[in-house]
């Protein structure tokens, strides 16, 4: 499918979502709002995992910082509950970016599995702060936000209004991230993912490229955090746990790394199965687990690669019959990440 056609279908799909969802059930509306927020988080992680080829296990930290900033300002200072919400959005993005800039200084010294461990450790620091700094964060009890922001006559306490706001941020994030990955900077990130040494020899400052990618990623995750704080009007250390980071990683891997929309699809699948299926059957975790295993075993490039895989299947069969030693030409991102350890 050509690029304009892809963009057209994504736009059509987004329009369909924004038009149809408010007319479904209240639960679906709330679920869709959460899906879009976590989709922003997943897309921000995809920038690292899919485009730059580095897997972070600490993205919950940026989400948590954004969420706690919003909650603390609202609870302790009654700030960000009116038009000043936009300032909170700005601060949330800034906090995500600044923290990412700080974390990246440590994390980018390592590669592969060591990078995973460092990002994990750094995000656990944020969890530790949330959990232990009672006087500021409310500790394990978390913080309850007094209300969602009110802009004049528009009350975001109304789920439909909040859905539209989140949708706007989501669509804008998708657009900005798309522009970013299509920019020369984004293309060189893909170059780094595919062959870091070659990029270095060509004279690219690989470290700086990764550093910038990390900061941009942190900024979007911080934005997701600000929106997340208001979605259930509470923030707790549970939002910053390893599980949240792993969820984000799974969303990207399920949908398809290096595609942006893959993370969105992953968010839809994970949240839909978890929150919707759980209202129907108690054995929903098996469905989710089975799906993870099946997709990672049979579609290591994610669900979005399903069409490509079907088309390729006969070609691969023919190639192996011909005794070709080349194998599939598809680049397997998971292998490349492994390659980063060398």
């Amino acid at each position: 499918m050509s690029r304009p056609l892809k963009m057209l279908s994504v736009t059509a799909l987004l329009l369909a979502v924004v038009v149809v969802t408010p007319h479904t059930t209240p639960f679906l509306l709330m679920l869709a709002t959460r899906i879009m927020i976590l989709a922003i988080l997943a897309m921000s992680l995809d920038l690292l995992l899919g485009f730059t080829g580095i897997a972070s296990l600490g993205h919950a930290a940026f989400l948590g910082l954004g969420a706690y900033l919003t909650a603390i300002l609202a609870v302790r200072y009654h700030f960000g509950l009116g038009w000043d919400f936009w300032l909170v959005v700005f601060f949330g993005i800034l906090l995500g970016a600044v923290t990412a800039a700080l974390f990246a200084v440590f994390a980018l010294r390592a590669r592969g599995v060591y990078f995973l461990m460092i990002t994990l450790a750094l995000s656990q620091c944020v969890w530790g702060l949330a959990y232990r700094w009672d006087s500021l964060t409310g500790g394990d009890n978390g913080l309850n936000l007094p209300s969602r922001p009110v802009f004049g006559t528009i009350q975001l306490g109304n789920d439909t209004a909040y859905f539209y706001l989140v949708f706007a941020f989501f669509a804008l994030s998708l657009l900005l991230l798309y522009v970013f990955v299509e920019s020369p900077l984004g293309r060189s990130l893909v170059g780094i993912r595919e062959h870091e040494t070659r990029m270095r020899i060509l004279g690219y400052n690989v470290w700086l490229h990764k550093y910038i990618a990390f900061i941009v990623s942190g900024a979007f995750a911080g934005l997701a955090g600000v929106l997340w704080a208001h979605v259930s009007s509470e923030v707790s250390p549970e939002d910053v746990t390893l599980t949240t980071s792993v969820d984000a990683l799974l969303m990207v891997v399920l949908g398809g790394p290096g595609t942006l929309v893959g993370g969105v699809l992953g968010a839809v699948i994970v949240l839909f199965l978890r929150e919707y299926l759980s209202t129907l059957v108690p054995w929903w975790p098996y469905v989710l687990g089975g799906m993870y295993v099946a997709i990672i075993s049979y579609l290591p490039d994610g669900l979005l690669a399903i069409g490509a895989r079907w088309r390729r299947a006969p070609a691969v069969a023919a190639a192996s019959v011909a005794g070709s030693a080349q194998g599939p030409t598809r680049s397997n991102k998971l292998e490349i990440n492994q390659g980063g350890i060398e």
Binding site: F27, M30, R34, D159, S232, S233, E234, E238, R274, T279
Partner: peptide, 21 residues
């Protein structure tokens, strides 16, 4: 019966679903 998964955020979503839907 709704599953809170021992997570506050999931509990809120399920509670609002129970009330509104």
């Amino acid at each position: 019966v709704a599953d809170t998964q021992a997570k506050p955020a999931a509990a809120v979503l399920q509670a609002e679903k129970l009330i509104k839907q």
